[in-house]
Nucleic acid binder design. Structure first.
Ligand code: FES
Ligand code: FES
Lengths: 136, 136
DNA sequence: TTTAATTCCGACTAAAAGAGTAGGAATTAA
DNA sequence: TTAATTCCTACTCTTTTAGTCGGAATTAAA
């Protein structure tokens, strides 16, 4: 049970964006320095964030990113999902009748993982980007 | 964010033990067939469960495993922990002053992951093996 | 008009983790 | 004596993670 760096970095970078907002856009170079994350890796991550409409970019010199929506409207689940981190402890297709391990019925632990997924996703749904800046 | 097969199988196998309890011990072969998990893999898992005092073994023909404690006293966290699945989304050493990414202070998301860990661990602490057999 | 800063994008790679196999030793009931 | 079983270590294949690399496109500013 773990969360990978990509998801962590995505949240970190978004939090950085939210708490260091200024007039113009913020460049990845800045974030890279402040958060100590490789620039090239950040670029990858921001592509996805952008595609998921969480940030807006402006290119060229003095370019960078800004949040597309207010921090109070961005859920952690949005961020996590954007970078392909999926909360999924279920091992089977939820809407299939089949179970995991090639079984024809749902396994003995199916409901458990289902509940766990909901538990974790609930957490990510509840927390907004804004809450993060308060936490510090 | 995912749980690995090892942890899943461990819980499955323990649930199997709990719900198929009989007079003598239950062999891994049985569990292997019922749950469709490779025998050799189960052996690995049960070594750890045994070392963590969750099951007792008897060797030789007609041997097998039984729960060491009543299913009502075994927490999921015990099982997960036994097979080295750790719920840890924090990226730094919790009791160090240092942050992740070689930073000298805790990062902007530190408290978040800390809370998430507690959220997930709380779930695993609350659920007992016995609850699983009821779920079905 | 040139330059430097920046996003954009795809491909590549090294390391780590996951998932399981393989082989054989030791034990014990029948 | 045999078959069933746990015990234990080591190995291997595959997938995922965690980036790096190279270069194109864009734009502000000198
Ligand atoms: S997890 Fe759904 S059937 Fe096993
Ligand atoms: S997770 Fe603890 S400092 Fe970043």
């Amino acid at each position: 049970m773990k969360l990978t760096n990509k998801g962590r970095y995505a949240v970190m970078a978004m939090a950085d964006l939210a708490s260091n907002a200024k007039d113009g856009p913020i460049s990845l170079t800045e974030i890279s320095i402040r958060q100590n994350i490789s620039l090239a890796y950040l670029e990858q991550i921001f592509l996805k964030l952008k595609n998921n409409k969480l940030v807006k970019s402006s290119r060229g010199a003095n370019g960078g990113y800004v949040l597309e929506k207010p921090a109070s409207e961005i859920k952690l689940s949005n961020i996590i999902f954007a970078v392909d981190e999926e909360v999924k402890t279920l091992n089977c297709k939820k809407n299939s009748k089949k179970g995991c391990n090639n079984k024809t019925t749902k396994c003995i632990t199916h409901n458990l993982w289902d509940q766990l997924d909901q538990h974790i996703n609930g957490f990510f749904e509840k927390v907004k980007l804004q809450d993060l800046t308060k936490l510090n």
